[in-house]
Design a protein around this nucleic acid. Sequence first.
DNA 1: CTGTTAGCGCATTCAA
DNA 2: TTGAATGCGCTAACAG
Lengths: 333, 333
Amino acid sequence: MGVTIKDIARHCHVSTSTVSKYINGGKVREKNKIAIDEAIQLYNFKTNAIARGLKTKRSSLVGIVVPTLDSAFFGNIVSGIEALLYKNGFSSIISTFIPGDPVSENRKIEFVLERSVDALVLVPICTKRLDLEGITIPIILIDRVIDDFACDSVTPNNIEIVEKATSKIIEAGHKRIALVNGFDNITPFRDRLKGYYSAFDKHNLPIIKEYISFGEASVSEAYKMMNRLLELRVPPTAVIGANSSLSLGVLLSIKEHGLLIPEDISFIGFDCYDLAIVYRPLLTTIEQDIQQICENVVGLLLRRLQKSDSSPKESIVLKATLIEGNSVAQING
Amino acid sequence: MGVTIKDIARHCHVSTSTVSKYINGGKVREKNKIAIDEAIQLYNFKTNAIARGLKTKRSSLVGIVVPTLDSAFFGNIVSGIEALLYKNGFSSIISTFIPGDPVSENRKIEFVLERSVDALVLVPICTKRLDLEGITIPIILIDRVIDDFACDSVTPNNIEIVEKATSKIIEAGHKRIALVNGFDNITPFRDRLKGYYSAFDKHNLPIIKEYISFGEASVSEAYKMMNRLLELRVPPTAVIGANSSLSLGVLLSIKEHGLLIPEDISFIGFDCYDLAIVYRPLLTTIEQDIQQICENVVGLLLRRLQKSDSSPKESIVLKATLIEGNSVAQING
DNA sequence: CTGTTAGCGCATTCAA
DNA sequence: TTGAATGCGCTAACAG
């Protein structure tokens, strides 16, 4: 704390600009180079990122705004992105918000922006086009996009993968398949619904709307949704949880009702790998490759940060995987 | 981007210091107040936290350095702390490191420090006293302390709660109780081991060292440790996982061996609530109150940040809870 | 209550 | 290559 380039300049009998230049990789006379290195060690000098930022207008800070980190999914995303950014000299400012509260979400984005971050990584929930319109730094959206707003994004192939999962259940003989979904004004849930529809279409099976449930993507809401589904006069024989929290809530409800998977009800989850592998039986789930997501996000980010890059916005779609467990049973009729 | 107090000062025909004062809550003539507010709206002015930090020597940034966020436990901690800090005007810089790699851990701490953070929240793994000695900003340790280093900390009552859990298993008739533990040079694992010992002592039961396993606190290592334990000539009849990752690894191994809980083996976990409540059967686990941890950490932090506070270091010990499930069976002999 | 002045630590002209 | 001078945007003294 407190030792500046001025101190080390004085110590070496050179000017601050020489020190500054050297620190930033400039060429300096060999003698000075040695002296400066020595002084830096001696005083334990660290460049003051704040002062540097003020001057250069670049903070080497990236804002990461996500819903609460209570699911391992976002936790892994954040730590993956942070690790990659670190390798490139960036620090990560993190900010979580209350899912479903647009005010909290916007405030958190503003708050991060005030820190002069160089870029913003965002998992939007309520964020609208208008909220982001005026922002001049690069923005990368993860997991979901915003309607009518051209923005870089990294998302999974929701439609395709959910169609595949649904088809798997249909082909096991199920007709009453529940989907415990988030609100379909959020793009991934809308797309997952589309995938579900599409599977029914392809198999010429009628959609039973009663089995499609929309709600906030939280454990507790999913729990309630699934309770309602199980208490229908003719309950479903299979269920898909549309993300990790929803999957967890569904499992809770199934458990509460004393039902067995897959004997009483078949199940496919989403982004719940940790749980899937220790559950009895092994759960069939849709999983995203988090490392791949992070690499794409940071790669895109770094490209955007090169001033020269003004190429059109990219929508990177990553393939999710259907991991086979034993939670889907064959049934007749 | 780019509008400064100078712009709004000019617009209002006042000096920048008047604007600055108003922004920081100072008293200003009513007329000016209105004009400034208006101009701020008009130009969409945001105070530049970087410039402010350069001047005030306070960045309103708190560094949070934790191992990877892949367990929901740390994720929840981080998001809890972030939320509380936000309410107090602080941003959170997060940094994760590779557990078990002292170099990575130290580098990450350095990296965060270079950002001129006002305080540091740390979950140390390899960090030694020497690494932290020269740091002048407040440091709060979570989950574990560092030998011979007086530092503020918030930890659970490890000895007591593990003694309670172990006693519960002993009183159910078990004698061969495994402990899948982290390395005992890390204080929580050392203390959890003490609690385990203590329970055996109190019940006048001999410790069987064979059943105590030490390793890195990761899922995969725990999996291997438990595999070895289960392949002993006389395997344990019960097992305690000493943290969330270890618990998960233990469960995986049990599953791989086709054993049933609690029929074949009894189990008590640690910090794995999400899993515990959906597992069949309900798992008995030791749980920390994360909200309480966060409140204590941030409370202590804010006190330390008040320049006047130079009171002695505090070691806050929070009570963990033993949550009763159905994973511990009564046995004879 | 307000404006003038000065400077935080650093990076960047430009002249030497 | 080097150094003197300048200013990033803001806050803190001080004098008015």
